[in-house]
Design a protein around this nucleic acid. Structure first.
Length: 830
RNA sequence: GGACCCGUGGCUCAGUUGGUAGAGCGUCUCGUUUACACCGAGAAGGUCAAAGGUUCGAGUCCUUUCGGGUCCACCA
């Protein structure tokens, strides 16, 4: 053994060995109780950051449970990250002097897909560098056809059950990025603005002065509003005011909403461009004239038409000054709603969008936590969860971007154009309008909010793939037919295990393993064959026949088709089918940064409960953020971002992992600490040298006869076996202390007190075991004390393995003739 | 406006149901060079932000104040 532990010689080799041997698969413990953690999917296009490095906690849990004999699954996946990714791509386009507007929808989508595909895989290899024992064979992607189909299904179910509706509402719209955002994506920034006092003449004489921060929207005003209790304005309520800019007559109305103490106690009402005014206008039955377009320019606004909002404001003020209607302006602190991507001010614009009714969903989501069906750690985060859900407004799930899952809703351009009636399907284009039979159907151009698909992640990733067959085909499959043409790309790859579903009855009738998938083209379309599925199945030449009246709308002789080769099994053997959903759902822990508790965790609970009827996970475990060494949040704009991989290179994955866990209470933020990393690295070296010492003594004392060095348990029995032969008092004490350590570490892990466990292990290994015991045993070593020494050391390695997988594995194998520590058993006690 | 987190030795932070203050780094003294100088033995250093309360006893529970940070919220 070298004098110094060098992680670079070890980590990559060990990781690929683990992977090759299939140690990351739950099947390694086929009879164990299921234990499952789903990895929060990183952006497929992104790079590793400290949020990901904190997933060390998940690896600790998984490795611990795997060693305890659980059938442990840690399932990886990546997210297409709609807006994020499209934004990055548009920046790239901009650098090339192009814009998204230069391309049609399909081309743009294809370009982004190719761009992402190029970069995919990067994040996976980076996660591997950290030693994460993820089952890569089960890796998922939010745009996998199987996942997408489930998302469609969810949307359709919500639509059919009235949970999804199309609403004409004000949305937070970024006129620069060209999309709307949910409330959660809005960044409120404080700004020093001006409050303008503007006189509105009253038709019958006198005037009311209103205070506003947005004079330019005046042309869209429909009323002047005061508090009905306000004595100053009581006489005006019900009278008519003249809108200064355009000399339109508008009513003066009374509404308790108005704060008498603010400004002048009188406000203007602009329903189409202010969230409050929108609600007020509904209450008072007023109109909603929109005067700002999607491009951020004024429209239907007379002289202001074509101006950007900022220009329009100046123009308006100019006109008001001319008319002597601008009384004064004063400084005013206000909160601007800005775009979290481009930082520009968001415009409230009236748009038709898809919304999810959250009322019923959130009640259940609150309930499961209140009743303890889901527990949060640390518990104080439950308050945040409740507070957010209790105040939740309906969820806007449409985004006006192309990168994402396109909403499976169609509109008939023949009969329904103005009626706002949508045909929602499970993904396939409807044949015809159910009302008029027209085939002129247009799909909604919007895509789903990324969180809408990721809200389904826990069950979507576990749900088996299904391949649909028509009823007629079922008997053939059961008779052992092994090939089928499909017109739809199911996204299967060789090795995928697939359930066969009867598309009419929706019932499963068999399962199979995909052997091969070949892309081909339709050769011939046969309209005559009414029992078309026989033809459909025929091999050799691909002939497709249809019952549809006008199949050429969908399939042409050049259309793509897919030949699936599989091996099939009948339904009665279905128990053998590895159904992850059945086995692992609900998952055990959802571990993630507390910053996405609301955006993601609460939505997973809502949607998970809705679709599966069960909670998506039993525990929510939240970790804090990793700040820079000076305690400041890492951000690209500040330029203080540190790439965890650099640290892995320098200190080794074990050290990075250990440093992130050691001395950090669960859920608390921490600052990156180089001294801590250094200390962790020294610790790996200490372990290495302890091993070196024992290795040398082995040669001295035991003469290489240590084959039965079984450390698989510190159970009472084993302990007694050793105690029987052990005479030395110090040896006996050490056995008891190690026993106690194993017990405490186990309990700390059960309680998610990772820092306690790490601290105890560090303290014990270094300052008790090495400094005291080894020093003591050094000069009196004999066969018995050597047995105790090496045995107890290996117990500590096991306890440390979830935290520092590489160094523990490397040492362990040297003592156990290549036997892996990660699939060995956890030290038992009691 | 509401909620949450943090304020413990020079620095970064632990402190698990309240029971005489801990670690790493740094500093100082001494030692060892066949497990490890990425080492060992030892030392100095804290009125636990402040005040009040509960208690036999509070860093730990309660109240208030001050300082740092985060999240949420439609006051024009």
């Amino acid at each position: 053994m070298d004098k110094v532990y060098n992680h670079k010689d070890v980590e990559e080799r060990i990781y690929s060995e683990w992977e090759k041997k299939g140690y990351f698969k739950p099947e390694i413990n086929p009879k164990g109780k299921p234990y499952c953690v789903i990895l929060p999917p990183p952006n497929a296009n992104g790079a590793l950051h400290f949020g990901h490095a904190m997933f060390t906690i998940e690896d600790i849990l998984i490795r611990y449970h795997r060693m305890r004999g659980f059938s442990a699954l840690w399932l990886p996946g990546t997210d297409h990250a709609g807006i994020e990714t499209q934004f990055v791509f548009e920046k790239k386009l901009k650098a090339e002097g192009k814009s998204r507007l230069d391309f049609d929808r399909d081309t743009l989508y294809k370009m982004i897909r190719e761009y992402v595909d190029e970069h995919r895989g990067g994040i996976e290899s980076q996660l591997k560098r950290l030693g994460f024992s993820l089952d890569w064979s089960r890796e998922k992607y939010t745009l996998d056809p199987g996942i997408v189909r489930l998302v469609y299904k969810t949307f359709k179910k919500m639509h059919d059950e009235g949970l999804v509706y199309r609403g004409y509402r004000l949305v937070n719209y970024c006129t620069f990025d060209g999309t709307s955002f949910s409330d959660l994506e809005v960044v409120n920034t404080e700004a020093e603005g001006l409050l303008y006092y503007i006189k509105f003449p009253i038709k019958t004489g006198g005037y009311i002065t209103i205070a506003t921060t947005r004079p330019e929207t005046m042309v869209g005003d429909v009323a002047v509003m005061v508090n009905p209790k306000d004595k100053r304005y009581k006489e005006f309520v019900g009278k008519t005011a003249i809108l200064p800019m355009v000399d339109r007559e508008i009513p003066v109305i009374g509404d308790e909403y108005v704060d008498m103490k603010f400004g002048t106690g009188a406000v203007k009402v602009t329903p189409s461009h202010d969230f409050n005014d929108f609600e007020i206008a509904k209450r008072h039955n007023l109109n909603f004239p929109p005067i700002i377009g999607m491009d951020g320019k004024m429209q239907n606004a007379g002289v202001l038409d074509g101006l950007y909002v900022k220009q329009a404001r100046l123009k308006t003020l100019e006109i008001l000054r001319e008319k002597n209607l601008l009384e004064k302006e004063e400084k005013h602190k206000m909160v601007l709603r800005t775009c979290y991507k481009c930082k520009n001010v968001l415009e409230p614009l009236p748009l038709e969008q898809w919304f999810v009714k959250v009322d019923g969903l959130r009640k259940k989501a609150i309930d499961v936590i209140k009743k303890g069906k889901i527990k949060a750690y640390p518990k104080n985060f439950e308050n945040q969860y409740f507070q957010w859900l209790e105040n939740l407004e309906d969820w806007n799930i449409s985004r006006q971007i192309v990168w994402g899952i396109r909403i499976p809703a169609w509109k008939c351009s023949h009969c329904h154009r103005d009626k706002n009636e949508w045909i929602v399907t499970d993904g396939s284009k409807p044949e015809k309008c159910p009302n008029c039979g027209s085939k002129k159907l247009e799909q909604d151009t919007d895509t789903f909010d990324t969180w809408f698909s990721s809200a389904q992640w826990p069950f979507a990733t576990l749900t088996p793939l299904t391949m649909g067959f028509h009823e007629d085909v079922v008997p053939q499959v059961l008779k052992g037919k092994t090939k089928t043409y499909r017109l739809r790309d199911y996204g299967f790859k060789a090795g995928d295990k697939v359930l066969f579903e009867n598309t009419q009855s929706q019932k499963l009738f068999g399962y199979g393993v995909i052997k091969q998938v070949e892309e081909t083209t339709v050769e011939k379309i046969d309209y005559k064959d009414k029992t078309h599925f026989k033809t459909y199945e025929s091999l050799g030449e691909l002939i497709v026949a249809f019952k549809l009246r006008n199949p050429d709308k969908i399939v042409t002789p050049q259309s793509k088709a897919y030949l699936y080769t599989y091996e099939s099994h009948p339904l009665k053997e279905l128990e053998n089918f590895p159904n992850d959903y059945k086995k692992f759902y609900p998952t055990d822990v959802m571990e993630t940064g507390y910053d996405i508790l609301k955006a993601w965790v609460s939505r997973m609970v809502m949607v998970g409960l809705y679709i599966t009827g069960d909670v998506p996970f039993k525990h929510i475990l939240l970790h804090g953020l990793v700040n820079d060494p000076y305690g400041k949040k890492m951000s690209k704009s500040k330029g203080n971002v540190i790439n965890p991989l650099e640290l892995v290179d320098k200190y080794g994955a074990d050290s990075v992992r250990f440093a992130l866990v050691y001395g950090n209470a669960t859920g608390n933020d921490q600052s990156l600490s180089f001294p801590k990393l250094e200390a962790a690295r020294k610790f790996t070296n200490k372990l290495w040298n302890m091993a070196r010492f024992i290795d040398m003594k082995r040669k001295d004392v035991i003469l290489n006869e240590v084959k039965d060095l079984d450390s698989s348990s510190v159970s009472r029995r084993t302990q007694n076996d050793i105690l029987r032969v052990v005479q030395n008092k110090k040896d006996k004490e050490m056995i008891e202390e190690t026993q106690k350590l194993a017990e405490e570490v186990t309990q700390d892990l059960e309680k998610y007190n990772f820092n306690f466990a790490a601290e105890k292990l560090y303290e014990f290994a270094w300052h008790t075991f090495a400094d005291k015991y080894i020093e003591d045993v050094k000069n009196r070593i004999d066969e018995n004390s050597f047995l105790v020494l090496s045995f107890l050391f290996l117990v500590q390695l096991k306890l440390l393995h979830p935290f520092m997988p590489f160094v523990t594995e490397e040492i362990y194998q040297r003592f156990n003739f290549g036997k892996s520590i990660m699939i060995d058993t956890w030290p038992a006690f009691a």
